[in-house]
């Protein structure tokens, strides 16, 4: 279904378009729209968007969403869905906060807790989805309820973390070499990123390579494209689905810790609707819920597009809270219709 039609390179534009796989065509659209949007933002609002730090701030605040969305994309490529990720992120940040402040934990134990929670959710949900053959939506829905409920059981109020070593790690600014802007006094201020951003970028690269060049990565696409033919090819479909969910859970755990590093507090209402943002980013990035089509780089640009549109709406003076969601919704709508029209046209050619 996806990356197969790359055979003949000859022929006119129509033929060339036909030869681009679904994954690539959606990816190209996403990147193009992100670039166009950013250029429009620069020309209209000038000042703010020209500063490199604006872009890096977007990366810094969306690092957790990038990681979580990557995990979501993998599950969606295999044809499943995981809506528990927002709950897991909230549970992870609450547990880590409690561990650091009330149980005398250190950074190492809190990271272990984060990864442990993520893996546990991934393994249990993956087992039920893959081996007991129950719809992923229902299972991960229950997972979301469970995580949200557990968050309030762990601790019911919002509180800020005061652990010194952790705060030091949270405030570590890593300077980006050679990029920056001049402040009012004319001195050069280098742009910076947070540790979470570095983690997010490493994960994006790792997962991109895995999906592109490893046997496991290719089998994700095969399972999502067509269950039956994947089985005929000798792929262990159940195990592949299981691994996809475990990976997604792991990403939710790591993403939860990165989120925790950004907010440095625990609260039952943290990361509300993060699962929907992650699904939206994946879709804008060209991953299809039917499975078999998707790309991690696209997901990265999906998150960035969402961040840009939120920034633009804020800068344009629509400060009422509801405008953000309305624009995100309409953007999602445009992308979905665009995707469906393009794929329908490509099929007809």
């Amino acid at each position: 279904m996806s990356d197969v039609s790359k055979a003949s390179q000859s022929g006119g534009f129509k033929n060339k378009l036909k030869n681009i796989s679904d994954t690539n065509i959606l990816l190209v659209i996403t990147i193009a729209i992100f670039v166009i949007m950013y250029v429009i933002a620069i020309t209209v609002f000038k000042g703010g968007f020209l500063k490199p730090q604006t872009f890096f701030n977007m990366l810094n605040s969306d690092a957790a969403l990038i990681i979580v969305s990557c995990g979501m994309s993998i599950v969606m490529i295999t044809g499943g869905i995981d809506i528990s990720v927002g709950g897991v992120v909230a549970l992870v940040s609450m547990s880590c906060a409690v561990n650091l402040d009330y149980q005398g934990g250190n950074i190492f134990t809190s990271i272990l807790i984060a990864i442990g929670i993520g893996l546990a959710f991934g393994i249990v949900q993956g087992f039920i989805v893959a081996y007991l053959d129950i719809q992923p939506f229902i299972v991960t829905l229950a997972g979301m309820f469970f995580a949200r409920g557990m968050t309030t059981i762990v601790h019911s109020q919002q509180f800020n973390v005061a652990n010194e070593a952790f705060m030091k790690m949270k405030d570590t600014h890593i300077k980006v070499f050679g990029i920056g802007s001049y402040n009012k006094n004319g001195t050069f201020v280098p742009a910076y990123v947070l540790i979470g951003t570095i983690v997010a970028i490493i994960i994006v690269i790792l997962l991109f390579c895995m999906l592109k060049w490893t046997k496991l990565g290719r089998s994700f696409y095969a399972v999502g494209g067509n269950n039956q033919s994947a089985l005929m090819l000798g792929i262990n479909v159940k195990r592949t689905k299981f691994i996809a969910h475990v990976l997604c859970g792991l990403m939710a755990g790591i993403g939860g810790y990165v989120y925790f590093m950004f907010v440095a507090s625990g609260s039952p209402s943290h990361a509300s609707e993060m699962e929907m943002n992650a699904i939206a980013s994946s879709i804008i990035g060209g991953t299809m819920l039917t499975g078999g089509v998707g790309n991690i780089i696209g997901t990265l640009f999906g998150v960035l597009s969402l961040g840009t549109i939120k920034n633009i709406v804020g800068s344009a003076g629509f400060t009422d809270a509801w405008w953000t969601n309305i624009t995100v919704g309409s953007m999602l709508c445009i992308f979905l219709i665009l995707q469906s029209v393009i794929i329908a046209r490509k099929r007809r050619m």
Binding site: I81, F137, E273, M276, I279, A280, I283, L289, A321, W322, W323, T324, N325, I326, V328, G329, S330, L332, C333, L336
Partner: peptide
């Protein structure tokens, strides 16, 4: 699920 995601995000804001 994807199509209704649009109103899911925007509905309460509207």
């Amino acid at each position: 699920m994807v199509a209704t995601l649009i109103l899911f995000t925007a509905g309460r804001s509207i």
